[in-house]
């Protein structure tokens, strides 16, 4: 029997972002992954910069001089924002993945309500917390520190 040609229809990375009319949890999913990768990238850069101190004082000072300025200040703030979101959303995910915020199985009665409805109030609280932490961090980074 001849093999039937099929057209591959995987969404790929587009599936993370351009999903359609999705709920907020899908965008939090994408943001969680992106912030995770951003923090990882910062971690690698951080290791390289701090490792220069092991070579010599001069190398350390040169490395530190290379990561100062407005762009790096904003970049550092973005790392802080990513960290705040990733940590607080991570707490939500951990509680969901342990079945705490999903609720037990129930009879599906139309209009269906799912575990999304169970965890949503907590999600809203966590996102408000993220906003508060991000604003407080911004005040500390840009105003209190006198940059």
């Amino acid at each position: 029997m001849p093999e039937i040609k099929q057209y591959p229809n995987k969404l790929g990375l587009k599936g993370w972002v351009v999903g359609g009319k999705w709920g907020p949890e899908r965008y939090l999913y994408t943001l969680h992954r992106v912030t995770g990768l951003g923090i990882l990238l910062y971690f690698v850069m951080h290791i390289f910069v701090t490792a220069s101190r092991a070579i010599s004082q001069e190398m350390w000072e040169r490395a530190m001089a290379g990561v100062t300025g407005t762009i790096f200040l904003v970049g550092e703030y973005l790392v802080f924002v990513a960290f705040a979101f990733h940590a607080l959303n991570g707490i939500r995910l951990a509680l969901i993945e342990l079945g705490v915020l999903t609720g037990p199985a129930e009879q599906p009665i139309y209009p269906y309500k799912s575990s999304l409805n169970v965890q949503r109030p907590f999600m809203v609280v966590m996102m408000i917390l993220v906003l508060v932490v991000v604003l407080a961090g911004g005040w500390d980074f840009f105003i209190a520190a006198g940059h």
């Binding site: 709920g23 969901i96 993945e97 999903t102 609720g103 199985a105 599906p108 009665i109 799912s114 999304l116």
Partner: peptide, 24 residues
């Protein structure tokens, strides 16, 4: 990691996202 869309689109109210978390 709980995007939750499987449960949002399920036409029978099966809630796969819940099943996967309870399985974990």
């Amino acid at each position: 990691h709980y995007a939750g869309e499987c449960s949002a689109v399920c036409p029978k109210g099966v809630d796969p996202a819940r099943a996967i978390q309870l399985m974990k």
